[in-house]
């Protein structure tokens, strides 16, 4: 350990505290304050109100929040399903195929979300797949963006898994489907939950591709926040952000509980 003395450890914590405070805690606290601010001219708001939060939890803003939740759930569920399937499938493929597929699946990480949005727009604006203007194009975009993470988490867990478990299960007379269902997937449960959490968090916050693609009836909360801030309704935007944070947190906690239970076994 490099920091042995009381003084050096104190300095280390101080540095951490300042960094954490300035970079993470302070902006979040400001958003929290702005969400309940009536007027704000000095260092702190002059008066407080719950009006913005009430606005953010009703009408268009509420509809937007529900859209985000649905998009997040569908995209993360699809990412876990497709990602897990892909991770399992590439392991039985020849090595060169595996390497190519692995690279392709990770490609969207390297591509800015705006590019994903534009390319989907170009690709799906013409028949036979004219998805442009429907909610489906938003869901597809979210899936493309979160899939690499959903796949990566499961793939990493599979790399660490002991192949002997599946082999022994097969030797005991279990056909591949049974081995998958009774041995491989239960052992992957913590990874599946982690994969879902990451996908959900990313999808709930996605704005770059969505803003290029969303139809009027499928506007996600981050896009609404963007629009509110753009119109100058900063306090409403802050309140919407608090709602977004709350919803994401609830989703992650739920998945975290599921993960804890899976890891216990």
């Amino acid at each position: 350990m490099l920091f042995r003395t009381r003084r050096s450890r104190f300095l280390l914590w101080l540095a951490f505290g300042v960094l954490f405070g300035v970079v993470i805690a302070a902006p979040l606290a400001m958003v929290g304050l702005a969400a309940v601010a009536g007027t704000w001219n000095g260092v702190l708001p002059a008066e407080y109100t719950a009006r913005h939060l009430a606005d953010a939890a009703s009408g268009d803003a509420l509809a937007s929040a529900l859209v985000s939740v649905q998009t997040g759930l569908v995209a993360s569920l699809a990412a876990v399903l497709v990602g897990t399937w892909a991770a399992l499938a590439v392991r039985s493929a020849p090595r060169p195929v595996r390497r190519v597929v692995d690279t392709l699946l990770h490609l969207p990480v390297a591509v800015p979300s705006v590019v994903v949005g534009l390319s989907l727009l170009v690709a799906f604006s013409q028949p036979p797949l004219a998805l442009n203007g429907t909610r489906w194009i938003v869901l597809v975009a979210h899936l493309v963006i979160v899939l690499p993470f959903g796949y990566g988490v499961v793939s990493g867990a599979l790399d660490r898994a002991d192949p002997a478990l599946a082999e022994v299960a097969a030797s005991l007379g279990a056909p591949p489907a049974l081995v998958l269902w009774r041995v491989r997937l239960p052992l992957l449960a913590p990874a599946l939950s982690a994969s879902a959490s990451l996908s959900l968090a990313l999808s709930m916050g996605e704005v770059g591709a969505t803003v290029m693609l969303y139809p009027p009836d499928w506007r996600t909360l981050p896009v609404s926040v963007f629009a509110q801030a753009d119109r100058g309704e900063v306090f409403l935007a802050a309140a919407s952000t608090v709602v977004l944070l709350g919803l994401t947190l609830v989703g992650l906690l739920t998945l975290g509980l599921a993960k804890g239970r899976a890891a216990e076994r």
């Binding site: 002991d162 002997a164 478990l165 082999e167 022994v168 299960a169 097969a170 030797s171 005991l172 007379g173 279990a174 056909p175 591949p176 081995v179 009774r182 041995v183 239960p186 052992l187 076994r265």
Partner: peptide, 27 residues
């Protein structure tokens, strides 16, 4: 392998960690 009906014991035992002893044996 699942159609060969052989008993296999490997070096690290490969017991199914999420199953109790009885369920491992009953698998």
């Amino acid at each position: 392998p699942h159609r060969r009906g052989l008993g296999v014991v490997v070096q690290n035992y490969a017991l199914f960690p999420h199953m109790r002893v009885a369920d491992n044996v009953a698998f």
